[in-house]
Design a protein around this nucleic acid. Sequence first.
DNA 1: AAAGAATGATGACAAAAGTCTACAATTTAA
DNA 2: TTAAATTGTAGACTTTTGTCATCATTCTTT
Lengths: 189, 189
Amino acid sequence: MIEILRQHIVTRLGKNIDQIDLVLSKFKPIETKRNEQLLSQGEVCKHVYFIAKGCLQVYVYDQDMNENTRDLIIEDNWCTELMSFGSGQPASENIRTVEPSQLLAIDRKGFQEMMETVPQFDKVYKQILEASYANSVYRINTFVALSALDRIKWLMQNRPTLMTRLSSKLIASYLGINKDVFSRLKAQL
Amino acid sequence: MIEILRQHIVTRLGKNIDQIDLVLSKFKPIETKRNEQLLSQGEVCKHVYFIAKGCLQVYVYDQDMNENTRDLIIEDNWCTELMSFGSGQPASENIRTVEPSQLLAIDRKGFQEMMETVPQFDKVYKQILEASYANSVYRINTFVALSALDRIKWLMQNRPTLMTRLSSKLIASYLGINKDVFSRLKAQL
DNA sequence: AAAGAATGATGACAAAAGTCTACAATTTAA
DNA sequence: TTAAATTGTAGACTTTTGTCATCATTCTTT
């Protein structure tokens, strides 16, 4: 499992990283079933997860306790509640697995040590941040500019794997559409 | 004008930055009227702007050529189209001033020099990225979890200055609500 | 293999949001 | 300072989206 992370780092920083094994040793492998809770709002987010395999859902509750999906993240990506992880304040979001997953978790201490002792890792962190931000930007633009139907089309165009891989319920929640409406709109295509 | 940026950096990095004047010298001051176009989609985004005074709108067009606002950014903040600025690819977003503004612009060359010669600035960049990302996360959550009316309430709670300072048309577009609907919902409060 | 739970589709209806028009009020630019 | 343009509000109407109930189907779990 750790080899997948090694590969992820190598493709971003090149092969000759002195302390790559030191870095890797700071990650703890976790095997999960589906629907395992990794973070609940109110708790402090203690880890950053690298997803070697599987899929995580980041979600929030509304007044009616419906679950609304802020992000769906698949393998070869990172997941955390950054604000809580960075500040130590309680998280406002929840995270769970939606598939049996293989994760590599690093805690705050490990993360900070890594950033200090392996300056290059700072670069990886920046890349992760930039990618996450870019993702958010596109996502916001779909919400301000597109109707429900067009958001569905957008997802099919831009993240076709998500559409086929995950349940309609999840996808609808990710798109900010009621699941019944999603079902109807899909039929229209 | 440059003093405002100096202050911005000092509060983030502390007073004893060796080369702060070198950094500041790389920024070009720009005075704008309102409604000045800083970037049009298709162009490459060549600058990062620090807003010393005023307000910028980042927006995209939909099929009907309506303008949809991805972000509204006021003084003491940064604005750019990061993906285009970073990659040199054509921008997918537009940027204009919505108020007469005082901006400090740095181009790619200046930016890269800065990151290399003043390693501390890298930290500022990271902070900007993190803040922008955090912002986006909250914003996405308002879209997946809240109705139009609740998004209005959210904005009044969390960014009350925006509400009073900018036109209803802009705010409606920022919230992803039709301007007529926005007018009606506001009356309901 | 079977019971139970979750999922996805559908119809009927309700509520929310969007469109269009008109008009007064305000702002902008000549 | 005025003419022109933009903005904000309102009513009547349409479309989109949400809700609820039902039912067949598929997954899960025992």
